[in-house]
Computed example of a mutant assay.
Amino acid sequence: MLLKRLQPMMFQARRNYVELMFQVMGRALQAISDVDEPTREEVRALPEGFLFEMQVMPNGPKLIVEHTGDGKLHFHGDTAPRPVDLSIQFKHMAHAFLVLSFQEKTSVAFANDRMLVDGDVSYAVRMTRVLNRLESFILPKLVAQRAVKEYPADIHLPEKLMSSARIYLKVATQFVETVRA
């Protein structure tokens, strides 16, 4: 009886968590493209105007970022200005929660058929590398190792601390600007 009452609250809590993580990830993707040259190199290979979406099917939370040129990403929130070029979709809220709470690696979720890719697979691989690099910077190493397929060997503690501080500062600034608007 108690479980039946708690289930809707648990589902709503998961949904709220996923929505918040998409907001943070979208802003962090924009921020990392400002502060990290290897990320900009990865993004430069995408066509200018490229729109990337990550969402929970069928009408769940989503994030949309655009390559605006020179390796820079711009976070659009959950509204695309035009049709997206690449969409990575979680099949269920529970699947998104597992990945975004770092209980399951993205590669494992894909292997377990919890996600769909709609678009060019080579672009999906590139965006996954960008997401993995972002997670490697903004998460503690122990958590990041659970989240990404392989923790980058080229990220050392001083660089990680400086980059993560710059990313978090930019994310916080974007949240404040959104509240002011």
Rank of each mutant, 00 (worst) to 15 (best):
V43R: 07
T79G: 00
K4I: 00
K72R: 14
Y17T: 07
S136T: 12
S164Q: 10
G71I: 01
H92S: 14
P158H: 09
R44M: 09
E150R: 13
Q23E: 15
A28E: 03
D113T: 05
A80Q: 10
P158C: 11
Y17R: 05
L142P: 00
G77H: 08
H76D: 02
Q55M: 14
R44Q: 11
L98Y: 03
F75R: 05
R114P: 00
E104R: 15
T128S: 11
Q145I: 02
N59G: 11
M162V: 14
K141N: 11
E48N: 07
H67P: 05
I64P: 08
K62R: 15
Q7N: 04
E42S: 13
F137Q: 06
V179A: 13
L157G: 01
A31Q: 01
G69Y: 03
T79H: 11
V56A: 09
R15P: 00
L86W: 09
V121Q: 09
F11E: 09
S136L: 04
I138M: 07
A28P: 01
Q55S: 14
E42T: 08
M54W: 01
T178C: 02
L98K: 14
V121C: 00
L134F: 10
A124Y: 05
E177A: 01
N16W: 11
E150K: 12
V143W: 04
T106I: 10
T106M: 12
R14N: 12
R129V: 05
L161M: 14
Y151Q: 03
V18C: 10
G119I: 06
G49T: 02
G77C: 10
K91F: 14
D120M: 07
F11M: 09
P8A: 04
A144M: 06
K72S: 03
Q30E: 15
E41L: 15
E104I: 12
P61T: 05
F22W: 07
V65D: 07
M9W: 12
P152A: 13
F52Y: 15
A144H: 08
L46P: 09
V125T: 12
L161C: 06
G26T: 13
F75T: 03
E150T: 14
A45Y: 06
P81H: 07
S122R: 04
E177C: 00
D113F: 13
E53H: 02
A172K: 00
L134Y: 08
H156F: 12
E48V: 15
E53K: 15
F11K: 13
R40A: 06
V148K: 02
Y17C: 02
T178H: 04
G69D: 08
